[in-house]
């Protein structure tokens, strides 16, 4: 290398006009025949395919995803069961007689009986409602509270953002289950246990997660050129949030909400298992699993069926979230 590789060579040297390089070799001038390389109109608009919105496009890819189909069918089934359990079981879950206790399967009782002599199948069917109610309503409340908080914090920033970020951190320091345990043993909750107290408790500790996700998505979109463009068209700041920022931030929130729904169901079951969730008068998978502990060694199927129902339900929601994530992934779009 020459010696003048000093920092000075970084400054532009006035070279005057550059003339380009002329090769000493002979270079052939090749021109492709026009028929082989036909010219197309510059930037022609293709109108072959059908117009698709982002949602329509997502739907199109979801339709072909077996994960999505299976999980949706399962979720629909679980919801149907929870609304109309009588359609699925002619046996009453409360018609128990101790003489059947821990019996194996019998005609009309495909899953056998539990230690109190109740039909396990009927209890699994009737237990769906509590889980679904807790999961669905907790998710609805968490999305409303967390979504609004996160969207406002992310969009307006400033002190609101700082306060909400701190608040979120504080709630994060208490894991969902731990926080829920503390709240559920408070007198005001302990004395009036019902699905609704569980929902309120899980909402208290669940909203910061959705708030974080929403905030992140909103921050990503609030500076987008299309928001600036809308503002310069005269749209108010809040109007731009509602019309442009929020719709574009929904995808990750939907994904996380779907997965969270599964985890709320698990949380409810865990609380019930610990004896702090639903009262034992409410029929639920969590309570039945908890009760089956006594006899699990002799008759594992009493544990197995409610646990399987619970796991399949949770799995469906998590799979749905996974499928939605694939379909709504912003990187896959465009």
């Amino acid at each position: 290398m020459s010696e003048n590789q000093t920092p000075e060579s970084v400054t532009p040297e006035p070279r005057g006009k550059r003339e380009g390089k002329i090769s000493t070799r002979h270079i052939e001038h090749f021109v492709a025949p026009l028929e082989e390389t036909p010219l197309q109109d510059i930037d022609k608009v293709s109108i072959g395919s059908e117009p698709l919105s982002m949602w329509a496009e997502a739907w199109r890819s979801l339709r072909k995803n077996p994960l999505f189909i299976i999980s949706t069918l399962l979720i629909l089934l679980v919801i149907l069961v929870s609304i109309f359990p009588q359609w699925f079981s002619s046996t009453s879950p409360t018609a128990c007689s101790l003489e059947n206790a821990r019996e194996g399967r019998a005609p009309g009782h495909i899953m056998g009986f539990n230690f109190q002599g109740c039909d396990v199948y009927a209890r699994v069917i009737y237990g769906a409602r509590a889980s679904v109610i807790v999961g669905v309503f907790t998710t609805i409340f968490v999305v409303i509270i967390g979504g609004i908080m996160g969207a406002l914090a992310g969009y307006y920033g400033g002190w609101l953002d700082a306060v909400l970020a701190r608040l979120g951190d504080i709630f994060f320091a208490l894991p969902l289950i731990l926080g829920a345990i503390i709240v559920m043993q408070l007198p005001m909750f302990r004395d009036s246990r019902s699905p609704w107290t569980v929902i309120v408790t899980l909402t208290i500790f669940g909203w910061p997660q959705i708030a974080r996700i929403t905030r992140g998505a909103v921050v990503e979109n609030r500076g987008a050129d299309f928001v600036q463009a809308a503002r310069s068209l005269g749209l108010s700041k809040f109007g731009a949030l509602v019309r442009h920022v929020v719709p574009n931030s929904l995808a990750p929130v939907i994904v996380v909400a779907s997965i969270s729904l599964g985890t709320y169901i698990v949380a409810e079951a865990t609380l019930s298992y610990l004896g702090l969730g639903l009262p034992s008068s409410v029929m639920s998978w969590g309570n039945d699993i908890s009760a089956s502990q006594i006899s699990v060694r002799n008759n594992p199927s009493i544990l197995f069926w409610p646990a399987a129902a619970l796991s399949i339900t949770v799995l469906s929601f998590i799979m749905l979230g996974d499928a939605l994530r694939d379909a709504l992934d912003p990187k896959a779009r465009r």
Binding site: I289, L303, S311
Partner: peptide, 17 residues
């Protein structure tokens, strides 16, 4: 996904058993 879906206390019972 399966591992995430099965509650810890169920997993605990099953493994213990």
């Amino acid at each position: 996904l399966l591992v995430i879906a099965v509650p810890t206390f169920v997993l605990g019972f099953v493994l213990q058993f």
